[in-house]
């Protein structure tokens, strides 16, 4: 006999993403994966309902990106995105918490980290703290939902998975381990409704004090594989690049610095 599975209410929190190369607004990758997970759930658990929630300004550029999520709704029951409208630079956490507390869904899915703005990845934690709900990060799959308890699969580094049972309502965050988002189609994206609800804007004072600079790509440490056997090569491939032998040069002359770099390049075998 199959255990009874009932449909659940899922809210997916989505943000306006930023393409890593061109910086154009888009549906954020992790949030889209979150929606993909939710739509998969809707398909598996009859009677489930997925809702989309975004807090932010109602600007033209944002709208195209947000409609990208609605474009994933072809053949599903989803047709609306609730937009908690607030001014640019406002704190999203209080309004989201208030909205979720007013009509609590059983499951809230978010991406692990936003692609623009602070991108601190703290939103799910702050929300969980305010609502007093459990939080699971790095979600890979929702296996089943029974009697208000969800069995989740959490992704750990290097392909490991951990099965967890969580009492609902709960917040889960997804990252690259969740299933890739489906294609966003133009028709449903255009037809979908953006239901804007004006909310009190609480300016994010901390953010206002920050100085924002474009991020620079950090140089990656070279990984030199000196493996003799296939086993060693595999271990090297599976291992993370490890630091540890770094050296911080401070207050040295250009010549000394250059010498240190040259020495390192020789040691690493880059120069011969």
């Amino acid at each position: 006999m199959r255990p009874e599975q009932q449909g659940i209410e899922v809210a997916v929190l989505v943000s306006v993403g930023r393409h890593p190369i061109t910086g154009r607004a888009r549906r954020a990758d992790q949030d889209a994966r979150g929606l993909e997970l939710a739509l998969g759930l809707e398909r598996r658990l009859p009677g489930s309902r997925v809702s989309l929630l975004h807090a932010g300004p109602h600007a033209e550029e944002n709208e195209a990106a947000l409609r990208g999520y609605l474009g994933m709704s072809a053949g599903t029951g989803l047709d609306t995105l609730t937009l908690l409208e607030q001014a640019e630079g406002s704190d999203a956490i209080p309004v989201l918490a208030e909205h979720l507390a007013a009509a609590p869904p059983q499951l809230v899915i978010t991406g692990a980290r936003a692609e623009r703005g602070e991108g601190s990845g703290l939103l799910p934690y702050a929300l969980a703290e305010r609502l007093g709900w459990p939080l699971v990060n790095g979600l890979a799959a929702v296996e089943k939902v029974e009697n208000g308890v969800a069995t989740l699969l959490q992704a750990l580094p290097r392909g490991q998975r951990r099965r967890l049972k969580v009492r609902l309502p709960a917040i889960v965050s997804v990252d690259g381990a969740a299933p890739a988002a489906r294609q966003s189609a133009f028709g449903p994206a255009r037809r979908g409704e953006l239901a804007a609800i004006p909310v009190s804007a609480e300016p994010d004072r901390e953010l206002a004090e920050w100085q924002l600079d474009p991020a620079r790509k950090r140089p990656k440490r070279l990984k030199i594989v000196k493996a003799a056997s296939a086993r060693d090569r595999f271990k090297a491939a599976a291992a993370k690049a490890e630091g540890g032998s770094g050296q911080v040069l401070e207050g040295v002359s250009a010549e000394q610095g250059a010498e240190a770099i040259l020495k390192l390049l020789n040691e690493e075998g880059v120069l011969r």
């Binding site: 888009r26 474009g71 994933m72 072809a74 053949g75 489906r182 294609q183 966003s184 189609a185 133009f186 028709g187 449903p188």
Partner: peptide, 17 residues
């Protein structure tokens, strides 16, 4: 299939994105 269903097969979704 592409505009209404978002079902362009293969690598097409990536290429369109």
């Amino acid at each position: 299939l592409t505009l209404e269903r978002g079902k362009t097969p293969g690598k097409a979704a990536e290429v369109l994105d």
